[in-house]
Design a protein around this nucleic acid. Structure first.
Lengths: 154, 154
DNA sequence: TAATTAAAGACCTGAATGGTCCTGTTTCGG
DNA sequence: CCGAAACAGGACCATTCAGGTCTTTAATTA
């Protein structure tokens, strides 16, 4: 467990990919680049826009671009924006465990949460950029520039 | 997000509480102590037993006791036992992102996962034991020794 | 032998995430 | 001036999975 939500996963991928483009990029274009379904990309971008990670330009020839550099975005901030506060248990504030009166561990969780949070804050999106392709890239990848991503097998 | 599952939460609480008892303790007794529903306590204990965190004794006068000291149990190991491998995304091994061919971030996730894992491995259950009651304890807490935990308000 | 308790697994339920769609608003181009 | 393109902001549905319950079996003790 401790699995990251898929939306947060998408958000990080989208931001990194967006950072590699120049000019504004439309959500359909980002969908083609990332392989994520277009409505989902649009949804994620809306959230990211609301939290100031990307700047949006409406109307024809509109699209999105990064609001600041990838180096200035931490993994923690993106996750928090998409999924809410990073917390490893319901018993966050030291109050009101849902296990009733007898939990007795209340304060201890904050230690864990703080440790996790600072760990993720220390990782920037810039450091998520791969230096090389991590597995063999098929030739179909070139079709991205022309029309659409070919989603094979589905 | 990044919320810990409730089962893992329970497991940690149960282990800590079990460590404070002496002799074998039955699952109904632990349910009374922790306030967690008895079937759930039994379920968690079974998992913990299978992973060697507790020793079980069947039959009449049976029950559970710690297999080793709380200082020798890390938070990471308990979470991994209850919830499986600690991973922040589906794209763990560097292979086969579910976002298709164009993820391109594959290896980068492992950095995050390793960081999180080592953070949690550095925290022992011993350090989760509270030194004092963290919020005012009502007098009903005394009824624990006699019959059952009084779950108020529910 | 009978009572107690853990072991094991099947099964149901409910919440929440993931994903889609619709309508409105803004901007550019003809 | 009008229409197309693209974001904004919801509502909405569906699927998954975690959480929880129940039943049966096996072991131990009195």
């Amino acid at each position: 467990m401790l699995k990251l939500s898929r939306l947060a996963d998408y958000a990080i991928v989208i931001l990194v990919k967006l950072g590699e483009q120049d000019g504004v990029v439309t959500s359909p274009a980002l969908a083609a680049i990332t392989g994520v379904p277009e409505p989902t990309v649009a949804k994620v971008l809306k959230v990211l826009s609301a939290h100031g990670f990307v700047l949006s330009q409406r109307g024809a020839k509109g699209g999105y671009r990064l609001a600041r550099s990838l180096a200035d975005m931490s993994v923690a901030s993106v996750i928090a924006a998409v999924d809410g506060q990073i917390a490893l248990t319901a018993c966050v504030g030291g109050r009101e465990c849902d296990t009733g009166l007898s939990c007795g561990l209340c304060g201890s969780w904050d230690v864990i949460n703080t440790a996790i949070r600072s760990t993720l804050e220390g990782i920037s999106l810039e450091s998520m950029r791969p230096k090389e392709a991590c597995f063999p890239v098929p030739s179909q990848i070139n079709t991205l520039n022309t029309t659409h991503t070919v989603r094979e097998g589905a």
